[in-house]
Design a protein around this nucleic acid. Structure first.
Length: 273
DNA sequence: GAACCCCTGGTT
DNA sequence: AACCAGGGGTTC
């Protein structure tokens, strides 16, 4: 799915479009995508005005004038796209919000993993409550302390720590590989053996890469587009992700593709140790 | 941790 | 036909 830069790009692109819109009609095409159950979901949303869009980790939070929020999670293949006027529903549409002025917001999700949770009355998604620190807005000292502390009580690979949303909110498989390459740290290195100097470097490279990815409006490999349906551009700037067995752009040696914490993982055996 | 699950669709 | 995929929850 969309990782932090993609979800944030969706948020930024949608906010000026949906802010102030009043929900006239809710169409649920996939019942399991929403909470609470469809009847209550529809009843609670209809007539409400969208007053803000926020982001926490990979969650997009739609704030309503009732004080309620809808927590969208796009998972692997979800897209939230703004539409003007009546358009035929795209295949795999799971949810549509139709607004008073004829505009609408379509949730399209081929793999059907994405969710929209209205809370209250539903409880906030568990993953949202236990979310870790925001990479871009947490103070450096605080974030580094949290990373090192988490690393100290963990036996597994450093990549697993960077992907742990309860520690750090928003990195996914693409950016974890990119950050570790830029920092010169192998993804399978035990987290507790990563030195303070290396954490510092991981932190710096992570900030740079996330900001650059935001500048390029995210990475579009397959499904990802922003709220206007526009793809991002950062796929053209990836250093290792998706380049299995191709030459390293820094040293020319062949990149390695392997499996770490169950995820396909790219790294350079020369540049990363 | 690893293995499997939720799904569809693209690639080998 | 088999395997893979940007996520994450559950179960050993």
């Amino acid at each position: 799915m969309p990782e932090l830069p993609e979800v944030e790009t969706v948020r930024r692109s949608l906010l000026p479009l949906v802010k102030g819109e009043v929900i006239r009609e809710v169409r649920i095409c996939l019942e399991k995508a929403v909470k609470p159950a469809p009847e209550q979901f529809v009843a609670e949303l209809t007539g409400k005005e969208i007053i803000d869009l926020q982001r926490r980790g990979k969650y997009l939070l739609m704030v309503l004038d009732s004080g309620q929020q809808v927590a969208f999670h796009l998972r692997m293949s979800g897209r939230l796209v703004w539409q003007v006027g009546a358009v035929p529903l795209e295949k795999h549409t799971t949810l549509v919000l139709n607004f008073d002025d004829g505009h609408s917001l379509h949730f399209v999700d081929p793999r059907k993993f994405g969710t929209a949770v209205l809370f209250p009355p539903a409880p906030p998604p568990a993953g949202l409550q236990t979310l870790g620190l925001e990479p871009l807005t947490t103070k450096k000292e605080e974030l580094l302390a949290a990373l090192e502390q988490a690393a100290a009580r963990r036996s597994g690979p450093v990549k697993g720590l960077l992907l742990d949303q309860g520690v750090l909110a928003g990195l996914g498989n693409i950016y974890a590989d990119e950050v570790l390459f830029a920092a010169g740290v192998r993804p399978m290195r035990p987290a507790r053996e990563v030195t303070t100097a290396e954490w510092e470097k991981i932190y710096q490279r992570m900030i740079e890469i996330l900001n650059k990815a935001l500048d390029h409006r995210g990475t579009s490999r397959r499904d990802y587009v922003d709220g206007r349906g526009e793809p991002g551009d950062f796929q053209n700037h990836l250093q290792v992700y998706g380049r299995k067995k191709e030459p390293c752009l820094v040293c020319g040696n062949q990149l390695v593709y392997t499996r770490v914490v169950g995820r396909g993982t790219h790294y350079c055996p020369v540049c990363q140790e």
